[in-house]
Design a binder for these strands. Structure first.
Length: 232
DNA sequence: CCAGACGTTGTT
DNA sequence: GTCTGG
DNA sequence: CCAGACGTTGTT
DNA sequence: GTCTGG
């Protein structure tokens, strides 16, 4: 699966790499792993009970804190809601560095086999019916190496697909309702009850899911036409 | 004890 | 850093 | 996530 | 098949 979200994203400038300057953000329609995404995190030093937030650029593909630097691969793109609290790669991030990736929607791929046994990958775009931004739950890490990796990194948390998406794929990103944003972003461990309450599949009816052109299968393709429903 | 993995998705 | 496997 | 590349010595 | 790049 992939949360190739249509967050508004662009390459950060060298100075202030992690700082988001909204006026310079360009819209994106095909964000894939390894690329910068905009994340909402708790501002450091915000007092408990008076959380302040800030926007930062993170690279999609979490690099665990014990890794010396950016690994060869793409990093850890997803973390399962069922295991994110205990896996060594995510445990510390889940305890102290939860974040939200704002996105207008996300893609999921339906893999099917035709009669000849060939696999086809058909993309679907999921979004809120009213056009509201979605809040994708994620965890993040600070950059590890001394120099060379200016951005932090993040992994999207997934849960079992809800009914709206189950026909397309068996997993989906965890989507957080606004009422839970503050609790999710607070930089301290989540109690077990909150963990179970927040990290579950989105309610059915939250999303409209439409098939889109396989044009989006090319990671270099971008533009508003990618989210146009197929056949329209 | 030390060495080596540490993640997911999807595919076989 | 921490857990798992040998 | 998907798409596309994947390699070196030595020869033309 | 597997890795890299986007």
């Amino acid at each position: 699966m992939s949360e190739d979200a249509t967050a508004r994203s662009d390459s950060p400038g060298s100075p202030d790499a992690g700082e988001v300057r909204l006026a310079e953000v360009e819209p994106r329609w095909n964000i894939s792993p390894s690329q910068p995404v905009i994340a909402v995190i708790a501002a450091s030093g915000s007092p408990a009970g008076a959380l302040t937030r800030k926007l930062v650029w993170l690279r999609w593909g979490l690099v665990p804190p014990w890794a010396k630097s950016q690994p060869a691969g793409r990093g850890l793109v997803n973390a399962r809601a069922e295991t994110v609290a205990s896996k060594p790669s995510f445990r510390s991030a889940f305890a102290a560095r939860r974040c939200i990736l704002p996105a207008d929607g996300f893609y999921e791929w339906q893999v099917t086999e035709d009669v000849a046994g060939r696999r086809t990958k058909n993309p679907y775009y999921a979004r809120a019916p009213g056009g509201d931004l979605l809040a994708l739950a994620a965890v993040w890490e600070e950059p590890n190496g001394p120099v060379g990796a200016p951005l932090g990194s993040c992994a999207v948390i997934t849960a079992p697909a809800n009914a709206a998406l189950a026909q397309v794929h068996d997993r989906m990103p965890v989507l957080l309702p606004s009422a839970s944003w503050a609790r999710w972003l607070a930089p301290e461990p989540l109690d077990e009850a909150s963990h179970r309450e927040l990290l579950r599949p989105a309610p059915d009816g939250l999303l409209v899911v439409e098939q889109v052109s396989t044009e989006v299968n090319n990671p270099r393709a971008d533009g508003p036409s990618l989210i146009r429903a197929a056949g329209t």
